[in-house]
């Protein structure tokens, strides 16, 4: 190959861009041709000269910091922007849901506590030697018995035609508030119906203590300022039936 042909490849050779086979052949030629070797040397020296001369400018520390800040700041600013758009309502929603959640949880805990306490009362009543203070199957006997013992009056349902039997009644207390506890029997099960003044039952928050799992079915409602609780270890349907009898009673 003529020197002119080799020289065309010299730039690529000194730049390390010549294919390996060509580079080896050119290297061999350079060992034999002083003229081409001189040309190659000059090109290498030029490369070096430009490489040295080209590294000329140093950025200032201030610019570096500026750029670094812009890199660190930009995404953060974007986030702040998104934050303002998204997070405020999101925070409100979160706070609301937290508040609602706390409220619901508190209500739930409160309810659990009340139910738990009523279940305890129910069990304690049944376990005692004299479950009821007034023993009567006649509602017209039981109702007047409570007069003067509790600060309110109530009506008891007519049980004729149902399989519920009134066993009797006693005064009970929920959160230091007196109320009526009526014992009904369904088959071999006893069911307690608690009647308190609504306010009294609600203030039971102060009745602290462990919240035990209620293994009883409890149904509760308010009517005419009174809160009713029906507690028993019978099926939910039976509890509901007895509850309905009370609800239907004026």
């Amino acid at each position: 190959m003529a020197c002119d042909a080799w020289r065309e490849k010299l730039d690529a050779y000194v730049d390390g861009e010549l294919p390996l086979s060509d580079a080896a052949a050119l290297a061999k030629h350079l060992r034999e041709c002083t003229e081409c070797a001189g040309d190659a040397l000059e090109r290498v020296q030029m490369k070096r000269a430009v490489a040295v001369a080209g590294k000329r400018y140093q950025p200032s520390i201030q610019l570096r910091e500026k750029v670094q800040r812009s890199l660190a700041g930009r995404p953060r600013r974007a986030k702040v922007w998104v934050w303002r758009i998204v997070a405020l309502p999101a925070t409100l929603v979160l706070l609301l849901s937290l508040a609602v959640g706390l409220y619901v949880e508190r209500e739930s805990m409160h309810r659990q506590r009340v139910y738990s306490e009523l279940a305890d009362l129910h069990v304690a009543t049944l376990a005692s030697g004299s479950p009821v203070d007034v023993v009567s199957t006649d509602r017209h006997t039981v109702k007047p018995w409570f007069q003067g013992k509790i600060p309110f009056s109530f009506n008891l349902p007519e049980l004729q035609g149902t399989d519920f039997t009134l066993v009797g009644g006693r005064v009970s207390y929920l959160a230091q508030s007196p109320g009526a506890q009526l014992i009904y029997r369904l088959r071999q099960h006893e069911i307690s119906v608690f009647i308190f003044q609504d306010r009294g039952a609600e203030t039971v928050v102060s009745a602290s203590g462990p919240v035990s799992t209620v293994s009883f079915i409890v149904e509760s409602w308010t009517k005419n300022g009174l809160r009713y609780f029906v507690v028993g270890d019978v099926g939910a349907q039976d509890i509901a039936r007895l509850s309905q009898l009370f609800k239907d009673t004026g």
């Binding site: 080209g54 590294k55 000329r56 400018y57 140093q58 950025p59 610019l63 570096r64 750029v67 670094q68 890199l71 660190a72």
Partner: peptide
């Protein structure tokens, strides 16, 4: 990732920009 890739090239980019 961008910072990791871009910041090491800062001096070179400035030199090139200045040229």
């Amino acid at each position: 990732n961008f910072e990791e890739l871009a910041l090491p090239l800062f001096d070179q980019l400035y030199n090139f920009a200045r040229w």
